[in-house]
Structures are given as structure tokens and as C-alpha cells.
Amino acid sequence: MKALTWQGNQNVEVTDVPDPTIEQPTDAVIKVTSTAICGSDLHLYGVLGPYLKPGDVLGHEAMGVVEEVGSEVTHIKPGDRVVVPFNIACGHCWMCERKLFAQCETTQVVSEGKGASLFGYTALYGSVPGGQSEYLRVPQGQFGPIKVPDGTPDEQFLFLSDVLPTAWQAVAYADPPPGGTVAVFGLGPIGQMCVRIAKYLGAGRVIGIDSVPERLALADRYGAEPLDLSKVDDISEALIAITDGRGADATIDAVGMEAHGGAPGGKLASIAQKATGLLPDPVAQKVTDKMAVDRIDALLGAIKGVRRGGTVSISGVYGGEVDPLPMMEMFDRGIQLRMGQAHVRRWTDDILPLVLDPADPLGTLDLTTHQLPLADAPGAYEMFRDKNDGCIKVVLKP
């Protein structure tokens, strides 16, 4: 089959790889009909290369039609249309019983000290082949896949794999008071959905922060007050100034370690990230996991722009362990932090009725800006990374 494979730093290719097969009685195999490029894929494209090897299949947002199931998979059958959550969870272990599916003890990558395995996401998370491919083997198929009805566009359901539950969890963790103010840092796909979900769940005011005109315009269309990073000297001061001098009730960091801030620390961290990619893999792995410094402009803005006693919710992915945080200020101001990989299946029952609603209250059909064949994936990665052509979300069609 054809699949998008990692070949080196900022080098991906569509190549031939072996077709997946049923390996365990809990497996399923699907024929992929749509698969998306995520901001987290850009981490693999440019930062986390030391944990990849040439030929690894990328992608963790996929849906399709069931081809085959193992003997212990009973809730879906060949011919069913399904969405596949990006984290691989069993549904019955100690963590899963507590709906902490991103920490599933059955699929935890204990050797790397990490949580549940993820599709297409490096040796840190199990080296499971990803979904930017014609076919996908789905471990823990007895629990993970979400059955959806036929006869509607894939884009109505595809984002149940990651974008929607990640954004839903980000807003739930932010927990703004009814009618309160939420500031969303970063208006990529996750940030866009955070804006819409926050409004849907009762936020009185949502402020969307970015510097890309197309992203600001899209968030504005769904009720956000756009705040252009390029037009302010200090984003946290600007945010405080427009919130009665207090700051937002809650802030959401939907950016992560790929923040393109202009602060000196951001530039230095960008250089450090690129330099790490030039080290031999065993050395680079240790540097990335234990010593790497992320670009944390968005996180610092979220921390400094939230009001006293407010909550900072982090959905953006970070990679290092030595990122400096203003702990004295955080403690003095009584800030709460909540974060982590989305527990996808924890939220899908809440989201599915909204996705099924013909009125499309979350605008799922309005998020995709580019549909391209899988063969065009290498160029699509560059376009998404560089934010060219008004690109906000790319869906690939194998």
C-alpha cells in the first residue's frame, strides 16, 4: 500500500509499505478514506526526528471503512464506517476505568516512561504505524473505533479522532465560569475549535490570539474577538488591558512547543531545537527528552494573561523538562494549571450528538481549507508548516 513515511528531518515521502494484517484478536484493519495533518505532525517533521527511523508511517487522525476484525472485536464489523481515536486505549484497565484513556496501562510505553501508545508518533509512543496511508491496523479495536453513519462527508466526523476531543478537553479543563472570559492562544485547528466549543458551552467572551490574518478572520466568524499578536508589544499586558485590568478568567494554550514568538527566549529555543536535530540519535533523544528547551512564548502569555485565581489549560504539546516558568508569580496569583493528551473516548459521547446535528453547531464542515490526494502530502506538510495559501487544516484522501 501507499503511505506517507518519514525519511529525515523535514523530509517525508509517499512510499510503498507492507499492507497491515490482523496480528491480535483485538485488532481491526480499516481502509482509510480520510486522514488529516495535525500540528503535532509538524513536531515530527522538524523536532522529534531522533525518535523516528526512515520508513516510519506518520499520521494519527484517520477514519475509514472496516476491512477485517479480530475475533474479540464485536462492536464493529467489515463494511462499517469508523473514526479512529489518536490514542490507543483498551477501555478496561485501571486508568481506562477512570476515563484516563491517554494513560491506558495496557498500551503505555513503559520503556520510555510515556503514556498510552499513539498512532504514527515515534518510538516514544510505541512506533505504531500511522493513518496517513491507504490502510491502517487498529490495535485495541474492541474499544477504540467510533462507528458513524454513512451518507455524510468524512469531514463531519473525521475530527472526532483528535481535534474535537482535544479542544473539548481544553475548554473543560479551563472551566471558565458561566458568562466568563476565555482567551485562546493559537488559532490553528485546535484553537479554532476551542473558540467554538467555549462559546457553545457558555463562555460570555472568547478572545482569539494569533498573527495569521486568515486564522483571526475565521475565529472572528465564530464569535471570537481577534487579538493580533503582530500589533501588540506584550500580549499578556494587552490581554489584561482589555479585561478590566484583571486578565481572562481562563486561558488556553493551543500552541505548544512550535510557538513562533518573537521573544529572545523563543528565538534561542528555536535554534536549540534545530541544533538538537543535528546530534546523533541516541544523544539527541536524551537531550530532547530531558534537557530540551521549548519555545514557550504562548505558554508564558497564557500564564501572565490569566487573572488571579484563574486557570491555564494546556493542550499544546511540549517536549522538554527544563522549560523555565515564573513559579513565584504563579504561586502568588493562585493560578491553576491543567494539561495533557486528550482522553478521546471520554468526550466523544458528548460531542457526537453535535456532530450528528444537521445544523453543525461546531462548524466541523468549515474547518478544512485544503483537501488533497495522499500523493500530495509532502507539499501539504510544507504548506501547513509555513501557513501558506490560507492553510488552516489539510485533509488527505488516500
Results as ranks from 00 to 15, higher is better:
5 T>V: 14
7 Q>L: 10
8 G>L: 05
11 N>R: 14
12 V>C: 04
13 E>A: 14
16 D>M: 01
17 V>D: 07
19 D>P: 01
19 D>N: 14
22 I>T: 12
25 P>D: 03
26 T>S: 10
38 C>M: 13
46 G>R: 11
49 G>T: 14
52 L>M: 14
53 K>T: 11
55 G>S: 06
63 M>Y: 02
66 V>K: 04
71 S>T: 13
91 G>Y: 01
92 H>Q: 13
94 W>H: 14
95 M>D: 09
98 R>D: 04
101 F>Q: 04
102 A>G: 13
111 S>Y: 06
115 G>E: 02
125 Y>T: 09
134 E>I: 12
137 R>N: 05
142 Q>M: 05
144 G>E: 13
156 Q>V: 10
157 F>M: 12
158 L>I: 03
160 L>N: 02
161 S>F: 08
169 Q>E: 07
169 Q>C: 01
170 A>I: 15
170 A>W: 10
178 P>L: 11
186 G>W: 09
186 G>Q: 06
187 L>K: 13
188 G>C: 08
189 P>I: 12
191 G>H: 08
202 G>M: 00
204 G>W: 08
210 D>G: 01
212 V>L: 00
231 K>I: 12
232 V>W: 01
233 D>W: 09
233 D>Y: 05
238 A>M: 10
245 G>R: 05
254 A>E: 04
257 M>C: 08
259 A>N: 07
262 G>I: 02
265 G>D: 01
266 G>A: 12
267 K>T: 04
267 K>N: 10
268 L>C: 06
273 Q>D: 08
279 L>Q: 03
281 D>K: 13
282 P>L: 14
283 V>M: 10
294 D>V: 03
294 D>G: 06
296 I>C: 10
307 R>L: 04
314 I>S: 08
315 S>H: 02
316 G>E: 08
318 Y>N: 06
320 G>A: 05
321 E>L: 14
333 R>S: 07
334 G>H: 08
338 R>M: 00
346 R>S: 04
349 D>I: 02
353 P>H: 13
355 V>C: 14
366 D>T: 03
370 H>T: 15
374 L>K: 09
389 D>H: 06
394 V>N: 03
396 L>D: 00
